[in-house]
């Protein structure tokens, strides 16, 4: 990185540290913080979409769809999310490969499951064996995102269906009295009013999502935890920058990162909540309404 970094063994003190903290692997470590943020940015809307679908399905008039929605929202109540993470990341991979196998190699003679092996034809492999390294990494990340979205979608579906129930019934009944169909009443009355009730639950969910991101490590993605363990481990003198076991310091850095992330989220979500309460016929909205005229011209 710096011009004086060419011979690491001759360095000392602050210069050694400056060179050490700018090695290629450290750059990958810093980039992995970006991975966490990208995961958050992609997963949150996707999970919200899954959640909306699940919540609407639980209200559906079609019984099988309703059961599907109820089953989806029920799964997260009793079972730890880590179980889903470990399950989906393999199950999704095998599911995709099995589907491709059915489509691409219809006359494959052997069964897919042979004892303890899962064998599909070479064309069905995802990503294919000849694909470059970044394709493998991107595929791993994509399965991780999908896994997160499925699990957090179920949480979000719970929050949203609770919010839909919280919208006063009279509102929907009035819409129906005006001659709107069920679908119109849902789209024009229920959904727009739902958000103010859903926001506290969704804020909570965001905090949980933030705190679940280090689980990417369990899904085999080279994330912040992976690099902290990798870089912090003791380096003998065969390495360019030998040092004792520094994992404690790396994990302290991660702790600081997450504390900052949750603190910032808390402040931002508090503001959003305030913004959404403005003009609402709720206790929080009433408090805001009364707080403003103090000193302001009538």
């Amino acid at each position: 990185m710096f011009p004086f970094c060419e011979d690491p063994s001759a360095l000392e003190g602050a210069r050694w540290m400056a060179c050490y903290l700018t090695t290629g692997k450290h750059m990958a470590f810093y980039a992995s913080f970006g991975t966490v943020l990208v995961l958050l940015a992609v997963t949150a809307p996707l999970a919200l979409l899954f959640g909306l679908g699940g919540a609407l399905a639980t209200r559906s008039a079609v019984a099988p769809l309703r059961w599907l929605g109820q089953g989806y929202t029920a799964i997260v109540r009793g079972v730890p999310d880590v179980v889903f993470f470990l399950f989906f990341v393999i199950a999704l991979d095998q599911g995709f490969e099995w589907l491709r196998h059915q489509a691409l190699c219809p006359d494959w003679p052997m069964p897919v499951r042979q004892g303890n092996d899962f064998v599909v034809c070479a064309a069905a492999k995802l990503p294919s064996n000849s694909a470059p390294q970044w394709m493998h990494e991107a595929y791993g990340f994509a399965t991780a995102v999908l896994t997160f979205a499925i699990v957090f979608g179920a949480f979000a579906a719970n929050v949203l269906s609770g919010a839909m129930r919280a919208v006063p019934r009279a509102q929907v009944e009035t819409a129906e009295a005006y001659g709107m169909t069920r679908r119109q009443a849902t789209r024009r009355v229920l959904l727009p009013q739902m958000w103010t009730y859903a926001l506290p639950g969704l804020s909570n969910l965001w905090m949980i999502l933030v705190k679940a991101t280090p689980l990417l490590f369990l899904l085999g993605v080279e994330d912040v935890v992976y690099w902290a363990r990798e870089l912090g481990a003791m380096k003998t003198s065969t390495f360019d920058y030998p040092h004792p076991d520094w994992r404690l310091w790396y994990f302290l850095a991660l702790l600081a990162f997450y504390l900052l992330l949750t603190k910032v989220s808390e402040v931002v979500l508090g503001r959003v909540q305030r913004r959404f309460s403005r003009g609402q016929a709720t206790a929080a909205g009433e408090r805001l309404r009364r707080a403003v005229p103090a000193g302001a011209p009538a």
């Binding site: 679940a212 280090p214 935890v225 994992r247 991660l254 702790l255 949750t262 603190k263």
Partner: peptide
């Protein structure tokens, strides 16, 4: 404010 996972490692 921090993930339990990180707390375990730390």
């Amino acid at each position: 404010g921090s993930p339990l996972f990180i707390q375990f490692f730390l």
